[in-house]
Amino acid sequence: MSQLFFSNYTNEIENLLKNDLLKSTYCGMFDDLEKLVTLADRIAISCQKHPHFTNISSFLKNIERAFTDPNDADQASQVLLNVEKWIKPVLYFSDKERWEKLNQEKHYFTLKPTVTQLRLLSQQEMEEESPDAFEDVGKKYIWIAINSRNYETHNTALSSSELRLNYLRCAMTIILVHST
């Protein structure tokens, strides 16, 4: 796996997200996209060398396969299903104390509490009933990621193909917004 994994996909990331997120709280991330992908590369490298996060390589392979065919809903779904492999190390490297607290109860250390700890959505936003409640597309993608991931992971329901095609956008939004 390349040391510059995310940097190698800068154009794909921009093409995937820019039009949607220009109307979002996170629109400024495109001004600093080079810095964000460099930070993401550094996190990926740190994960590969850290005993808790060596499974990041399989997640990066999921992203690579999804970018090969952005219209493949199954590949996009795999990225979303595994986004925890990314977001947990982000919490670890940004606030080890909060990570350790959540890690004590591994059963409850899932995507939703991690997103909560990183304050990517407010409590009120987390409790919304539908993604339609969001005018901000970035926050909508994060909400979809949290809620759809649970349905798909636990086979309680499969989302429509149209929604599943947005999973790559949802996962990449979570990956990048942690540092805006």
Rank of each mutant, 00 (worst) to 15 (best):
49 K>G: 06
151 Y>L: 09
155 N>I: 10
11 N>F: 13
103 N>W: 08
173 T>Q: 05
125 E>T: 08
135 E>M: 10
14 E>P: 12
150 N>A: 09
70 P>N: 07
38 T>N: 05
166 N>V: 03
106 K>V: 01
36 L>Y: 11
38 T>I: 02
105 E>W: 08
114 T>G: 10
68 T>L: 12
7 S>Y: 04
86 W>R: 00
149 R>T: 06
91 L>C: 02
87 I>M: 07
123 Q>C: 00
54 T>E: 11
162 E>I: 12
28 G>C: 02
21 L>C: 07
27 C>Q: 11
63 I>Q: 05
21 L>H: 09
54 T>S: 08
17 L>F: 15
159 S>L: 15
30 F>T: 11
65 R>E: 12
113 P>W: 06
175 I>T: 09
75 Q>T: 11
166 N>F: 09
76 A>G: 15
67 F>S: 12
117 Q>Y: 06
123 Q>D: 14
159 S>F: 13
75 Q>L: 09
70 P>M: 00
48 Q>M: 14
102 L>C: 13
134 F>Y: 14
15 N>G: 08
29 M>E: 03
64 E>I: 01
66 A>Y: 01
119 R>F: 05
162 E>L: 13
145 A>S: 13
5 F>A: 15
166 N>P: 00
45 I>H: 08
109 F>M: 07
40 A>Q: 04
63 I>E: 07
157 A>Y: 11
6 F>L: 12
15 N>M: 07
111 L>V: 13
146 I>C: 14
42 R>G: 13
151 Y>Q: 10
3 Q>H: 06
55 N>Y: 06
24 S>E: 07
144 I>P: 00
29 M>F: 02
113 P>T: 10
160 S>I: 11
17 L>A: 08
101 K>Y: 04
72 D>P: 01
89 P>E: 10
99 W>A: 14
110 T>F: 05
46 S>I: 00
153 T>R: 14
51 P>C: 11
152 E>S: 15
104 Q>E: 09
177 V>L: 11
159 S>T: 12
